[in-house]
Design a binder for these strands. Sequence first.
DNA 1: CGGTATCCCTGATGATACTG
DNA 2: CAGTATCATCAGGGATACCG
Lengths: 145, 145
Amino acid sequence: METATHIAQEGTAMSARDTGVTLGVESPPQCSAVNDILARVGDKWSVRVVMSLAEGSQRFNVLRRGIPGISQRMLTRTLRGLERDGLVKRTVTPAVPPRVDYELTGLGTSLCDPVARLGNWAIANIGAVESARAEFDLKLDHTKL
Amino acid sequence: METATHIAQEGTAMSARDTGVTLGVESPPQCSAVNDILARVGDKWSVRVVMSLAEGSQRFNVLRRGIPGISQRMLTRTLRGLERDGLVKRTVTPAVPPRVDYELTGLGTSLCDPVARLGNWAIANIGAVESARAEFDLKLDHTKL
DNA sequence: CGGTATCCCTGATGATACTG
DNA sequence: CAGTATCATCAGGGATACCG
């Protein structure tokens, strides 16, 4: 697999538009960009929110109940961040009980695919990772005790 | 719900047309697993390290010089974490000047693909994200000032 | 060379209370 | 309902110094 072998070096920016597996994540300028996006994805709640919204537009508290553990504060902040990045669209409907709906934008939807792939990798390999951890920790004890 | 049963394979034609995307990432048990992996990926340095190692085995300081900005402390911690997760293999060669080489394991290599896809998405869309941010911030000023 | 140990600061997050 | 404000906590990460 020459696919993942020569990743980070030099000029070829992104000819990512066609071939499925395009590895070309590198140049310093884009590197920060990548890291930037990765930060969003690695964020504790962003992915959960995006995945929830992928199922359709939802109101604030519905969304909240759909993501166990998230505080009102963090949901608000996460949504603001996603909105700012153009991944989510916020729609306020003036009404007696305020109504605010959130939905993914095209950009947000497009992010779902790569994120889902990562998620699928995680699901497929979590077992391997966990046993690796167990083994590592075991050897650690063995060494220390 | 067999939603997440056939997820970890294939290359291009998923069922991304129906509801928009392939999502099958939601079951509570796997949810934490996914979040777990996502945390690794979202980590400030893990991806950089993995991508560097994707080019081949490297010694500690070579790796360090290849990742501008990372401190010795963080490189060590990041490598330990990756090693614990079974993504990286650490090899110590007893010698006068200590020599330690790091290389990706099969698992680590397999992670490169999904991560690279995310990276490619980032590169392809960083422009859209940044302009969205600019617009958002602009409206914010407009509202506040 | 490769790594560990400390100190310290900043940002991220949770809990709680209040507002339109 | 949908936030905003405030406070306290805490892990992440940089700088530095020392060890085998």
